[in-house]
Design a protein around this nucleic acid. Sequence first.
DNA 1: CCGAAGACCTGCTGGC
DNA 2: TGCCAGCAGGTCTTCG
Length: 261
Amino acid sequence: MPELPEVETVVRSIAAHITGQTIRSAAVSSARVTRNDHRSTEQGLAAARIVRVRRHGKQIHIELDRGLLYIHLGMTGNLLWNAAPGKYTRAVLELDNGVLLLNDIRQFGRFEYYAETPEQRVGPDALALDFETFFARLHGRKSAIKPLLLNQSFIGGVGNIYADEALFAARIHPRTVAARLSETRARRLFDAILQVLEAAIARRGSTISNHVDASGEKGSYQSLHAVYGREGEPCLRCGTPIRRIVLGQRSTHYCPRCQRV
DNA sequence: CCGAAGACCTGCTGGC
DNA sequence: TGCCAGCAGGTCTTCG
């Protein structure tokens, strides 16, 4: 489920419930989601107090009075407040005022305790970045722009849907060599990324299959996708059928007429 | 640095 | 109805 807008939606929906609460107990039932150690995650979390909840790119940082609970939703993760545990519940956090569950079908997500904040591998958050920095970071990058946008150390938060949507909005072909973007086109892309992410947050993200917020509510931005998932359908701008190619191992959707190399 | 390929998981859809 | 291929909002590692 999760790119920046979906993660932001989830963070907003849990923050008020859990901030300031004390963790009574934690239980992890999937070895995969705690790739460090499951016992130490459970022990580290027990009795800790939640100080605040933040998002960094697609990562969720639950800051504690002693350490950090790091959560990543992977492809199919959900955080649910006061829901009944089910077949895909991988972790349970029992608080004084309720229960937070991590459900994750594919188990690509993470739920890990760190006594000390680990070093950051994520680049600047897409919403916190300014154009000058973005443009400077394109310098020397010979990668195609689409896979570069997916590279979390380059920019944090953009995933497959919003990369395609932003490139379409900026009329840039996904294979364009990043370093060759003129300042004008880079500016268009930068603006498009912000605009698309903010519009998606306003719609509480895109629900393709299972993204929901902490109370189980779906997002609706998928109905506004211009290219993602629209292979063969007419471009909303010019009517040309949207094309799907594979770039950097990922499905990539674009309009062959509006987005020229 | 860059791209391709394969892994890691599980479920769903479409075609035959 | 059944089975199989292909696909999925992510990330890692290895190799050339």
